[in-house]
Amino acid sequence: MTKALDKNSGASAVNLAVNVGGLSMKNPVTVASGTFASGREYAELWQASVGASSEPSKNVNPATELEALGALTTKGVSFEPWTGNATPRIAETPSGMLNAIGLQNKGVEAFCQDDLTWLAKNAPELPLVVNVCGHTVDEFAPVIERLEQETVVDAYEINISCPNLDCGGMALGVDPEVAAAVTRTCRAATKRPLIVKLTPNVTDITEIAKSVEAAGAGALSLINTVAGMAIDAKLRKPLLARGSGGLSGPAIKPVALLAVHRCYQAVSVPLIGMGGIRNATDAIEFMLAGATAVAVGTANFADPLVALRLADEMQLWCESQGVEDINELIGGLLA
């Protein structure tokens, strides 16, 4: 909880600290899984950029800047290494992008040795959420069991919503019973905060939300990408090698806001809202819809330092609006 004060102490009376199902965050900002790797590339870009500028007074410690986040959410980690899909894996679309990366990752053991070692050394105070993925219900718990040995991990985000896998991913998140089964096996494997990330590609997202809440989810992330397609007319072919992918960016912000709004009314666990957030106003809109925290995803690609600045911008927004505690915004839509 003292983390809440270190960056902005004295500068403002606004309380930005939030609690997401047992995960204490000094501000509501995290990043969307898969857009930020494990933070190292962004931290090093920040460090190099500040070092290259002519302003000598700035602190160039990458850890300090990563710790501007309320929490870091890693890319999805599976038990075995996954090679992901063929390229092209992305396509730009109006106000958005499609991706079909396919959760390429080096597996939990290498993740622990490389990424977690780096994070423990360089950002030890940063709350860390590890995104966990699997092809089947049974593949999640072994990942968590391995990560339980790592003290730097603070929480898990369970990915039952990736649209880019032939087996697992979203298939686990569209059926309330299966989603609950994954949640139960993860809940049994850890006492750490458990966040379940939901797909919008369902008839009624609140049905899934209620089911995973009942199965032990301490918080929900929403939304994962919206299933979509882009076509090259001249070639008469899809723009993605996989054919279809997941849509992200400002194009899906209204979809995401509605999902957060509806789930806020349907469940009592806290929500992490994401989908097209680019600035403080976007983030505040998600909180008003019912999110306790927010994640920046696709915007990281255009502006790689936006997530590291967002909490400061949200604080300024609160100051300008006379908001003393950001928690008062959560679900604060007026009738």
């Binding site: 857009t35 790797a37 090679t83 992901g84 390229t87 092209p88 894996r89 992305i90 991706n99 390429q104």
Partner: peptide, 22 residues
């Protein structure tokens, strides 16, 4: 050349198949 998003090695969009993996 591959379609690229982040440009800093984080997003894994622009991978190339090599003898040492992607």
């Amino acid at each position: 050349e591959e379609r690229m998003a982040c440009g800093i090695g984080a997003c894994l969009s622009c991978v190339v198949e090599t003898t040492a993996g992607k």
